[in-house]
Amino acid sequence: MQVLANIIFLSSFYVSFAVGLALVFGVMRTINFAHGEFYMLGGYALWLLSGVLSNTIPDGATFIVAMLVGAGVVGILGMLVQLTLFERLKEQPFSIFMATLGLSYVLQVVVVKTIGPMGRSVPAIFPGFIMFEGAILPIQRIVVLGFTALMMAGLWYFLMRTDLGRAVRATAQNKTGAMLQGISMGKIALTTMFVGSALAAISGTLMGSVLMIGPFMGAEALWRAFIIIIVGGIGSLSGTVVAALLFGLIDTLMTTFGAGKFAAMVDAIIMLLVLSFMPNGLLGSRE
């Protein structure tokens, strides 16, 4: 039972982190290497705000404010990246790779120099745990799981039920077709970067409340996210969710049975196997 709970918690983390990256890649065919740092900034938003707002509003409210503020600020940062880097470096994937990688280092250094290299943590916002069928379920984790579900539901609503979301999906599937319907590529790119970056920040705030916050927390998470979106099928959000569940399952089982040290290797092997037998990933489309 504990193992099942662990699988769900870990998978939800993988989903929340990878989904923004998958969205940006799916629509823009561009990898944002600073996605991990956007996630990290979401974590620091929680740390900063819980310092500033402590004793003024309830901790739970701080948590929500941090999510909104982090998402807003980082979303705008994402739009700036779109305007300054992606727009100007169109059709030059290697330059974009280098530029976003550079941005990721700059953001790390800025945090190291302003706040410090040591990790930070925030006081437990929802302390305590409940026992269920012999499993320990920390309340904080359950809250995070709930917000992750809410975030995914919000993303689903945006993409499936709004005109702008429909246009984003259409652009991801056929750029020329979308342009001919009068969809402005610039607007879609800005929207996508805002949403994708904001998702990273929300994920950072959520996980920052459970794990610890540090300048390099995003860099590590990014590689796992790459494996997830590649296995899930590049550009496929449902594939990303399926792959996140798969790796949440595998990684949890491996640590449970004492093989955790091989998890990174096994994950990489799975990725290679999926790529050799299903080059488009589990749910990716042929292009």
Partner: peptide, 22 residues
């Protein structure tokens, strides 16, 4: 357009609605 340039992985209804995007 030539080759139709539809949006393959969204529904017929959604394809039509994208046409009304503006």
């Amino acid at each position: 357009p030539e080759g139709r340039e539809l949006f393959p992985r969204i529904s017929v209804y959604d394809n039509l609605m994208v046409g009304a995007y503006l």
